[in-house]
Design a protein around this nucleic acid. Structure first.
Lengths: 228, 228
DNA sequence: ATCGTTATCATTATCGATAATGATAATATG
DNA sequence: CATATTATCATTATCGATAATGATAACGAT
């Protein structure tokens, strides 16, 4: 019988995953811009700050590097990575490329729980929007898109998509402080789910592209090769 | 199996970087197919194999994960990742996308040493081909393409390109045992360098796309959106 | 016999201490 | 005064030991 689930978010048990704690805190500060690009992060300082050992900090930094949020160079320390507009444009194009490639495969053989899973995530997104938690909303949004790609059975692309999504979100947040409509962001997934549920590949692809193109306004030149 | 990949890390010195040694040996065995997809890798066993500690092994495994060669899932161990043809096709397209996007930027403001650097790497590739070292050749090839992208000033794309290149090479090696012409592979970079040196964006882009499309024969449908 | 509980095993995560490294400042030498 | 050498500092890399976790097998109760 379960009495309380006080601490742990999803998994049972009660151990404190300090590496994840440090990872999440750093990720948050980088995504929010509290830690500006170029900031130096030294492992021992972070270990002291987070009350954990150096190896644990390195684990977190390695993971941050894998998400593209920091860059680690040999013995010269770790710095918060840049997030330029030129790179953001390419990251959006790359992400569009991956999702556009995967979607037809998903439509061909979607898993039975796909639509239900997506609806559940959308509900969570609405909750996050209500709570005004932009970071949580973005996190669920990433899970949402990765869940779709999962049914494409191209697991090698997942880490790349994840990386692009993190960069997308970081850029969007960095350029939209104050003018954010979280509720609308969550709602924009409705038509995408509907298009996927319809079973029509063409309309799903169109919906996906529109979904991506309307995240940040880069002007009409974001997808020059678009055939729509 | 015997692991002896006691390679120096290219930096001078006299200390043995065991993490790199383990990383290189594992990478080699995965790329060559000696360790088939799905093989389980346990940290403690590897530590015994390589005469190093568990943390060092984890460092190597984390790096392998970042290159997409293994997948690590929570407390359920580490396995050698798959390398299917469908994924390979997408990886080639992704790589084409990145390099095609970067090349115009490179041509606009190439660093003074670009052509010289590329020529030097091509010389190394010829050497590797002479020595019949397909893995070394592939490694230099990756450096070659990353060096080009470096001048595009889009550092966030570099890790993604690297990951694609590793996957490309792994797939190529897995499907070409016995029928490999290393000398020709190295030589195919000549026209690419020449096109870049010419300063003409269009011909450079064309050369790059041709270069990529001829690595592995996927048939005419690799780049359906090609305008050449 | 079936189901739920507990014990065991394999594996990963964490820690603090120590060694190695690169960069920089200080010093000696011509 | 300029230059080469050495000492110092900040930082990352490595290690072995120990704790925590998830999966599985053995066990007992109904």
């Amino acid at each position: 019988m379960v009495y309380f689930s006080t601490k742990s978010p999803s998994r049972g048990g009660g151990r404190p995953p300090k590496a994840s704690a440090a990872f999440n805190a750093l990720k948050r500060d980088i995504m929010l811009g509290t830690l500006p690009a170029g900031t130096g992060l030294t492992e021992l300082d972070l270990a002291a700050h987070f009350q954990c050992s150096q190896g644990t900090v390195r684990e977190a930094l390695l993971q941050l590097q894998e998400e593209g949020l920091v860059r680690r160079q040999g013995h010269r320390g770790t710095q918060v990575s840049d997030c330029t507009e030129d790179e953001a444009v390419e990251m959006f194009r790359l992400r569009d490329h991956i999702e556009s490639a995967g979607l037809p495969r998903v439509m061909r053989s979607p898993s039975p729980s796909l639509i239900a899973d997506l609806n559940a995530m959308m509900a969570q997104m609405l909750q996050a929007a209500d709570a005004d938690d932009e970071l949580l909303l973005a996190s669920i949004d990433r899970d949402f898109h990765r869940r779709i790609l999962q049914d494409a059975r191209l697991p090698a692309l997942d880490p790349i998509l994840h990386r692009c999504l993190v960069h997308n979100h970081r850029f969007k947040i960095s350029r939209s402080r104050g003018v954010r409509d979280l509720q609308a962001t969550a709602q924009r997934h409705r038509s995408l789910i509907d298009a996927i549920a319809s079973g029509d590949i063409a309309s799903a692809t169109t919906a996906m592209r529109r979904h991506i193109a309307t995240i940040v306004d880069f002007g009409p030149e974001l997808f020059p090769g678009s055939q729509q």
